[in-house]
Amino acid sequence: MLTLTKPLLEAVLAHAWRDHPLEACGVLAGPAGSGQPQRCIPLRNVAGATDFFRIDPQQQLQLWRELDAAGEAPLVIYHSHTGSRAEPSRDDIAAAGEPDAHYLIVSTDPRHANEVRSFRMVDGVVVEERVKTLASAPDASPIEHSKETS
């Protein structure tokens, strides 16, 4: 399951609509292994196409390095489909190269507008997962508020 906050999801959708009809792409970064994406990093689709995206390899390397140095990871890799549903295409599956990442796809196709779906993709195997949206970021500590009696 992918858990992310509403503002993050809104940032992804806003990016997708801003770039429509070109495909938009970016990552949601957060502490490595936390499963809690904290910030949206929109990236430029150097393919500049309505049905294909590619992050500039140089920009990708630099970003991956920066995240790694900060103890972060690209927890979610997102992109938009602008003329079809939010389902992985053959290219999406062939390209998927981060086994630990959630692949979030959003649609800006008027027939499926704002469809949001998430997948794990490893070595050609695709598994859809539930997307859970939180109103705001969860506390770092468990939410057990045991009242102290003094």
Binding site: L61, W64, P88, A94
Partner: peptide
């Protein structure tokens, strides 16, 4: 020498419905 899978894809590949 760094090896990094590209972040790429898109609806072009058949399979997107």
């Amino acid at each position: 020498l760094t090896i990094l899978p590209a972040v790429a894809g898109g609806a072009a590949g058949e399979g997107a419905r």
